[in-house]
Each structure stands twice: as C-alpha cells, then as structure tokens.
Amino acid sequence: MKLQERNDQELVHLYLAGHEQGLEELIQRHKSKIYTSIYLLVKDQYLAEDIFQDTFIKVINTLKAGKYNEEGKFLPWVIRIAHNLVIDHFRKEKRTPVVTTGDGYDIFEVLHFYDESMEDRMVREQTHKELKAMIHLLPPEQKEVLLMRHYGDLSFKEIADITNVSINTALGRMRYALNNLRKMMQTKELSLKN
C-alpha cells in the first residue's frame, strides 16, 4: 500500500516500527494546516517556522518515548501542541500580538492559473491580502477558534478542551469571528466568490 493511502494512525505505527517515511508523510500531509494555524496567530513567518519546528520536535520525542495516546486523532493532537507553544511564546514575550506587514508565501502562488485573467488574479490576490489582514484584526480567542476549526478540522468539543472553555463559549466565539469577518468585509466592500 502506498504511504499516501495509509491513515495517520497507520503512519504513526510505521514510524514507531522504525520507518522514517511514516513521519515524513505525516509532516507533508499536515504541514500546511499546522503551519498556517501558527502563522496566522503569531503573524511572523520566522517565528512561525520556529514554533512549527518545536511542535514537531515535541511530536517526535513523544512518539519515540512511546507516550502517544492512540485514542486521540493525530492532527488535533499536533494542533494542541502548537497552540500551547504559541501561548507559551506570548506569555514569555508578555505582549499581545502586533500586526506586521511580513507575509508568508501562498501555496497557490506557485501554481499557475492559466484560466485566470490578469485582472481576476489581481482581485484574488487583493482579496487574500485583505482577508489575512482581517483575520489578524480578530480578537485572539475568536481567531484561534476559527483557525482550529478550519485548518485543524477540530470539533467544537476538541477546541473547547484545548482552550479550556465550554463548548458553548467555543461556538459563540466562532459565531462572533464569522460575524466580525462579515462586518469587516461589508465595510471594505469585499465579497467571497462561490
């Protein structure tokens, strides 16, 4: 069976049996979701790289020590580790996140959009730039719920557990995040394409 066809749990078992490809596939499979979740919280490409690296060092150490709890799903577990490291970072820095102009690179920028006109492409890029700026403007607790729900595919219960709030609160924060984004888009006359 190809590595790409194996589920996360099988890849973990493969890795624990001494096959490094198991870990490589897990990282390749989830790197974008995990890195983006970190990057949109810390707003700094280099800091996001460091936290991504520290996250997987913890993952590797826990797996190698045989301490991974197989009852949980792999991605939510890694997102939880990343989230805790982001919190640790802000605690150490004793500051709230500051909006910077530094940007990561978009995955899709490296792809070619042959069927897209120059004008469409410029509009799309502008929309993405605005969207990132709007996400940065969300209160941190709303932003983390939105990012965990979308990129981490975490349930509201899992998000509630990670952030130490009730499910109602997690759900409420998500609704406010969406409402705030919608309001900001209306203010900027920005619309999402179907």
């Binding site: 490589e24 974008s32 590797i60 978009d106 799309r124 969406l178 179907n194």
Partner: peptide, 30 residues
C-alpha cells in the same frame, strides 16, 4: 453559509513551512 464561502479563501491563503525546516526535523528524528 458564510463559513462555507470563507473556506475556499482560507484554503487559498494557507502557507507552508520552508523545506529546510522539514529536512531539519527529519534529520533530528533519524
């Protein structure tokens, strides 16, 4: 409905770490 519309754009603004970071992790694991 709004979240459904937003998902496409959230996917498109997704970024990824440098390959060198992943290589470092794999070297560490080995």
């Amino acid at each position: 409905q709004f979240f459904q519309l937003l998902k496409k754009d959230l996917n498109e603004i997704a970024t990824q770490p440098a390959n060198s970071t992943i290589e470092k992790l794999l070297r560490y694991s080995r």
